[in-house]
Design a protein around this nucleic acid. Sequence first.
RNA 1: GCGGUCGUAGCUCAACUGGUUAGAGCACUCGCCUGUCACGCGAGAGGUUGCGGGUUCAAGUCCCGUCGAUCGCGCCA
Length: 448
Amino acid sequence: MRTLVSDLSQRIDQSVTIDGWVMVRRDQGKMVFFEIRDRSGEVQALVLPSSEALAAAKDISVQSAVSANGVVRARPQKNVQNNKLNGGIELHIDSITVIGKAQTLPFELAAELNLDTHLDYLPLTLRTQRSRDIFTLQAAILDAYRTSLKAQGFREFIAPALVGGDAEGGAAAFKVEYFKDTDAFLATSPQFYKQIMVGPFERAFTIAKIFRAEKSATTRHLSEATCMDFEMGFIRDEREPMMHLEQAIRETVASIASAHQDIFERFMIEPPKLPERIPVFTLSEAHALIAKEFGRTIEDTLDMSPEDERQICQYAQEKHGSDFVFITRFPTKKRAFYTYESPDEAPFSRGFDLLFRGLEINSGAQRIHDYDMLVQRMLDRGLDPSKFSYYLQAFKYGMPPHGGCSTGLERFTARMLGIPNVKEATAFPRDMSRIDNRLSTDQTTGTE
RNA sequence: GCGGUCGUAGCUCAACUGGUUAGAGCACUCGCCUGUCACGCGAGAGGUUGCGGGUUCAAGUCCCGUCGAUCGCGCCA
C-alpha cells in the first residue's frame, strides 16, 4: 500500500512504498541519493551500497515516475537538514521501479529560464516548485474568494462562453462560425448574464472565462483570461459593491497569507498590506496627487495611464500603508454603456477601479436599472436596442438598482506574488501567437 | 498597430573599437567516488552565430530586409 511522503515521519523504522517523481538524483558511485516528490511533499531516498537496487538506481532519469519501497529511517544526526520538510528522515530503498520513464530533460528544472522557453515547455516546467507554488496559490485564491462571496450572500452560477454579441462594445471579440443567420462570439465578459442573474438570486457571482481578440502584446494581457464577477441588487450607490469587494479581498488575503506563508517566503514577498479601509480617490484627486507627489504633468485627465496606476499605488502604499487603492468618478463616456450616472454627478459615472500593486485588477460600477434610461443610453452610443432585446427583458420586468464588479484572476495572482508577466500566472496562457504550445524545434518524435 | 532591446551549443550566457580554429557554466556520454543534499573529480562529445541579401582583404560584431522573442506605449481588463 502506498504511503504519502508527508506521512513518512510517522512511519520511522517501518517498511513502506512511496510513489512519486524523481526530482534529483545524486549518484555517489556506491550510493545513490534521490529526492522523490508526490502531491504531499518531497523526501530524500537513498540506495545503500549493500542494496540490490543499486544497479537499477543508477539508470533512473530525473523526472521519471517511480515506485520505491524501503524502510523509513531517522537520519544520522550530522545529516539532519532542519530547514526542510522531512529533513530528519530518509527512505532506505530496497527496490525501485520506474513506472513512467523520463527522457533526458532539455534543461534542469531548477534552471532560470527565459519566459518563452518556460512557456514552450509548460508540460514540464509546470512541475517546478515555482509553478506549483503559483498555481497552488491561485487555487487558494479561487477557494477563498468563493467562500467569502458565499458568506456575503452571493450564489454562484455558470455563465455562457458562447454569446450572441459583445457585452463591452469596445473589446474585440473572437467570432464563431456556426449559428445560422447570426454572428456568435466568445464572451468578452459575463456582464449581461450576471445582471440577469440579479433577478433570480439578487446577489450572484460567477467565475468565468473571457476571451479578448485584442492585438495587445503586454505583460498584463491575455487572449483568454479568468474573471471573478459578482453583481448585487438593491444598492444605493457604487460604494456597496465596493464594500463587498473589499470584504472579499480582505478575506482572501487573510486566508492565503496564513495558509501559504511558505509560498510568500519563497517568492520573497510580503502578503499584501490592507489598512482599516482601502483608500478611495476620485480620478481627479488621484491625478492631482500624482502631479504633486511625482512632479509630473498628467496628459490624459479622462483615464488612468499605466504610469498613473503605478504611481498612485506607490503613493497609497507609502502614505496609507495599502497595497490596494480604489479610483472612482471616471467620466461616464469612458465607461461601458450600462454604467449609471446620477444627474447631479454628471458627467461622472458611478464606476470604479481597484488597483493592486500598480495594476488594475478589478473594474466595477453601479449599473443602469431603468429600462427607458438603458435604451436611451444605447441610442446615445449608437447601439441598436433591438439587438439587445434578450438582455433588456431583465429590465423590462422589474430590475432594482444594482451593481457589481469583475476581478482578473491572473492579474490578481501575478501581483500577489510579484510576478512581472501575467502569462506566468496562467497555467496555459493564450496570447496573440500562443495557442497550443508548439516547440520551435519539434522533439515529440525524437527517440533517445 | 507604433517604438526600444534581443536572437550565438539542449538551457543560461560570454566573445573589446570588425581581425587566428566562436568560449564558459549547467545538462548529456564515459571513467572514478560509502553520507550527498547546487554532491565532487577527470575526460569527451556537442555550433551553417534565426533566415536572406549587402559593405569589407576580413562579419557573431556594421547596413538593409525578413521571421521570432521580449519590454514599453496605444487599445483593453
